[in-house]
Amino acid sequence: MSLKIGGNGIDVELFLRTYEDYLKHVRRGSENTVKAYMKDIRRFLEYVGKPPRDIERADVEKFIKALSKGEITGSAVTETTVSRYISSLKGLFDYLELIGSIDENPMERVRHPRLRKKIPSFLTLEEVKNLLNAYDEEKKLKYKTILSMLYFCGLRVSELCNLRTEDVSFYPAYVKVVMGKGNKDRIVPISDNILPLLEKYVERYKPRIYFFENNGRQVHPSTVFRIVKRAAQKAGITKQIHPHTLRHTFATHLVMNNVNVKVVQELLGHTNLSTTSIYLHVADKEKFDAVKKLVI
């Protein structure tokens, strides 16, 4: 791209690398979030075709309209994706304003679309049992341990992959999630149900730096996805599931067992209670479905 940023002649690629470093090291964004934001920004700049200092609100609105129609990505996008693009652009122009490259922020009055809350997909208790038993403990101890940690601790896949040996305590039994999403550390107690499994795993694999390692490196998210998908197939689960499904299931089962939603919020590491409240709707749905079974 040959665009220039501001009036100082800095090449856009150099600027974008600087901004990416800012997102990673100052804003402390996760690898996946930074990657998505930078992809959004590049698409926006290529579409607008002008330096950020000349971009107006009308340019942004035109881009968002084209995005919603599928003209940017080649297919229609959801409100969630549009909202992410807006967040990406807000971050960009806030940064440009911070460093003095623009006087007026074109994102100042741009609103996020109203998002419809979807009830997250989750597994039944029986499905969880089948999933956790999909791998033989002797032959696939690591796989079984990964699945158990995802469910019993409600970890995000990135948190599981970044988990260090020093962050897992057996006495007392807890996992320390360091700088999870939202830059918040949290403590998650380890269930007595999986303590023997974790102890056996540590004794056999003797992880050094990361709790889950592969050839001396932390396990890759794609590996975790494959482990979950394969376990679902072996367990005969036909639902489309992924690692985050186990986190949703962890939260849902807690709410269904009448755990205070504030406690669930802390265990999940949610900044806002409204994010956690979606699981209350899951419990409500179960109640409505139960009542519908009453027939006279």
Results as ranks from 00 to 15, higher is better:
S2D: 10
L3N: 13
L3P: 08
D11G: 12
V12F: 03
E13G: 10
L14D: 10
R17Y: 03
T18G: 11
Y22D: 13
K24T: 08
R28A: 07
G29Y: 06
S30I: 13
T33A: 13
T33Y: 14
M38S: 04
K39L: 13
I41E: 01
R42C: 01
R43N: 13
R43V: 02
R43L: 06
E46R: 09
Y47R: 15
P52T: 06
P52L: 04
I55F: 08
A58D: 13
A58L: 10
D59L: 03
E61G: 09
K62T: 13
A66Y: 11
S68N: 14
K69D: 13
G74P: 07
V77W: 01
T80C: 08
T80Q: 11
R84N: 11
Y85T: 02
I86F: 00
L89E: 00
G91T: 10
F93T: 03
D94G: 11
L96N: 04
L98W: 09
I102D: 01
N105D: 00
N105C: 02
P106Q: 04
P106M: 03
R109T: 13
V110I: 01
H112T: 15
H112I: 15
R114H: 03
I119A: 15
P120G: 04
P120S: 09
S121V: 14
F122S: 06
L123C: 03
L123Q: 03
L125V: 15
E126G: 09
N130F: 02
A134E: 00
A134S: 02
E138I: 01
K140H: 02
L141C: 07
I146L: 08
F152S: 14
F152T: 15
G154H: 06
R156T: 12
E159D: 05
N162V: 05
T165G: 04
E166K: 14
V168D: 12
Y171G: 09
Y174W: 09
K176R: 05
K176G: 04
V178D: 09
G180Q: 12
K184I: 10
I187V: 13
I187A: 13
I187K: 14
S191Y: 12
N193D: 12
N193Q: 14
L195Q: 01
L198N: 03
Y201G: 00
Y201M: 00
Y201I: 02
F212E: 05
E213R: 01
S222D: 10
I227G: 08
V228S: 06
Q233T: 09
A235H: 14
I237N: 03
K239C: 11
H242R: 14
H244S: 10
F250W: 07
F250L: 08
L254I: 15
L254F: 14
V255H: 15
N260R: 13
V261D: 04
V261T: 05
K262N: 10
V263R: 12
V263F: 11
G269Y: 02
L273A: 07
L273I: 05
T276Y: 07
I278P: 12
Y279F: 12
L280C: 11
H281R: 11
D284I: 06
D284F: 06
K285Y: 11
F288V: 15
A290S: 15
V291K: 09
K292G: 02
I296S: 11
